[in-house]
Design a protein around this nucleic acid. Sequence first.
DNA 1: CTGAAAGCGCTTACAG
DNA 2: CTGAAAGCGCTTACAG
Lengths: 332, 332
Amino acid sequence: MATAKDVADRAGTSTAVVSYVFNNGPRGVAPSTREKVLLAATELNYRPNALARALSFGKTLSVGLIVPDIANRFFGELARALEEAAAARGNLLLIGDSGLNVERERSHVAAFVERRVDSVVMVSLSDTPDLRPFTDAGIPIAVLHPVDPGQQASSISIDYRAAAQAATAHLIEHGYRSIALLNGPDDSAGSRQHREGFFRAIQAHDLQIDTVELQTEISRAHAAQVALDVLARPSRPRAFYCSTDEQAHGVMFACHRLGLTIPDDVAVTGFDGTEHSAYTYPPLTTVRQPVMEMAERVISLLTGHVELPVHEIAPFELVLRESCGPHGGPDR
Amino acid sequence: MATAKDVADRAGTSTAVVSYVFNNGPRGVAPSTREKVLLAATELNYRPNALARALSFGKTLSVGLIVPDIANRFFGELARALEEAAAARGNLLLIGDSGLNVERERSHVAAFVERRVDSVVMVSLSDTPDLRPFTDAGIPIAVLHPVDPGQQASSISIDYRAAAQAATAHLIEHGYRSIALLNGPDDSAGSRQHREGFFRAIQAHDLQIDTVELQTEISRAHAAQVALDVLARPSRPRAFYCSTDEQAHGVMFACHRLGLTIPDDVAVTGFDGTEHSAYTYPPLTTVRQPVMEMAERVISLLTGHVELPVHEIAPFELVLRESCGPHGGPDR
DNA sequence: CTGAAAGCGCTTACAG
DNA sequence: CTGAAAGCGCTTACAG
C-alpha cells in the first residue's frame, strides 16, 4: 500500500504536508500544493494507516463495546444505536461479544486495552467485573444498567426499581393475584432492583397476592423450560413479570405450548422494549428503555470533556399492549 | 501506561528481550531473564500496545465483519460464531454494522482498510458492493451468500436455489395450491436463487398452483405490513415461502392479527434457521444454514494459507416444525 | 507556507 | 543469550 512518503514524493513535497492536507490541519497548506497532494493520493490509492496515526496522535478514535450476547436483540439494538452515535463523532465502535462466557469477557477487556480504545461501554456478565485494566490504562468506562455505589464506572440507566414496580402494579390493577417474578440468573444490582420494585408493588396494594420467584438465563430456551415446568403445577401463576423481553418470549412460548391463552389464562410483561416485543402473539406489554437516547448520551459523555464518573437516570416507558388484558386500562 | 522500554529498564535488559518474552520468540530468553521481565511487567502493569505491534509486525490479527443490521438475529448469531472462530486463532473480530445504510457500509469498508484488518467477511446491502478498497489493499474478502460469477471475493454459501426448491416442495406436498413468494428487497444473486428454486418446485409438480411474488424489506414490520395487505384480499394465498426467518415472523404476526390460524388457514416457511424460529407460535418450519460450520470454515480459509478466492457450498437442512401442517410428513 | 527530524511503541535482523 | 539500532507509517513542534 502507498504511504504518505510515496504521496509526498510524487507530489514533490513532504510527509508533513500530506498529513496537513489529510487532517485539515494543524497547519495550512497552499491551495496549489493541496491539489498536487490530493492528485497524487488518488493516483496512488493512498489510504492513511490508522494504526500509525493512532500511535503518534495518541488517540484511536474508537470506543469499545462489550456485551454478554450480541445475538440478543436488546444488545443488537444497543450496538446499532451506539455505533451510530459514535460514527456521528468520527469514532468507530468496536464490538466485543462475551458469548455468555466470563473468560471471553475478560479477554475482550484485555484486547480493548491493548488496542487502546479511547473509552468503553460495558454490559458485564458479572456484577463485579474486573475493570482495573481499563482504569489502570486511564480508559473511561460507562455502564448501562444499575451499579452498586462505589464503582469507578459511569452509568446511565433507567430506574429499574421504579420500572419493575410500575409493570407489576399494572398486572395487579388488571386483577391478577398470583404473579411470578421471572428474574435473571445473577444476583446483580439490576436483579435486586427488579425484585425490590416487584415486591414494592405487591406491598403497596394491600391485597392477598401469591408470588413465586424464579430465575432463568436470559434466553427463550431456558425461560420456556422453566415456565413449562411452573405452568404445569396445579397452583400455576396467573401472571409473569419478566426481567427481559427475551425471557417473556420464552414464557409466551410455554403458554402456547400448553394451550394456555394470553392474557386470558396467563398474563406476561417484558422488560427492555425491543422492537420485536411489538410482534409477539399477542403483542407484549413491556418496559421500554430509551436505547437511542441512552446511546447518544453515553457516547457524548465518553467522547466529551465531561468530568467522570457520572451517574444518570434515563426515563422509562411502560408500553401497554395486549399481553395483560384488553388494550389500555385495567378491567378485571 | 508503561511501555516495553520501562519494563526493560526495570528488568535491567533491552526492549528486544521484552518482546521475545511476550511473543515467545522468535529468539529464546534465559529463564532467569524471563523471570525478571515478567516480574517487572506485572509490577508496572505493562500491556503491550497492539497498535505499535501491528505497525511493525505487519499484521493486526483482526478480521472485519460487515453486516447489514447487527440487530437482526441471523447476523447476531453469525457474528457470535465468527467471533468464536476468530478468537480460537488469536484473532479479534471487528464488527461493522451498516444499519441498512449504504453510506455507512461504504464508511466501514474505508475504516477497515485504514485499520488494516487482515481479512474481511462481508454481507453486503448491495449486490455489487465496491470491494476495490479491499482488493487494492490486498485484503482477502469472503462473502456468505451466493455471488455472481466474476466476483473477486471468496464465498461460502448454502445452495439457495436447492433450499428454496425443497421448502417450496414441502409446501406443495402438504397440499397448498396457492403460495406466495415473499422475497427480499434487492435483485441480488440470493433473491434470484430464491425465486428460481421456488418456481422450479412449482413447475416440477405439474399441478395448478397459484403464485404471487412479493418483495419486502428484511424486517418483521415491513413483512407484516405487506402480509396484512395481501391476506386481506379475497384470493389470499394459503401459504408463504419467506426468504428469511425475520420476514416469516412478520407474516405470522399478520396472520394472528387477522385471526388466521397457522397452519390451518395459512402455512409459512422461513429461511436461515435462527434459534428463535423454534420459539414462534407455532414453531416455524425453516431452512437452516449451518452458521457455526460456515463461520469456522470462512475464518480458517481467511486466516490460513489457502489460495483465494474459493467458492464453497455448505449443506442446508430443511427443519420441519409445525407451521406447515402436522409435524413430520405431508397430509393434505 | 513548507521541510527535516524526532517521536509514538513495538519487532526483528544484525552483531557480538 | 542479549543489546544497539533500524524500521513500521504516521503527526507535530521546530526552523526557516
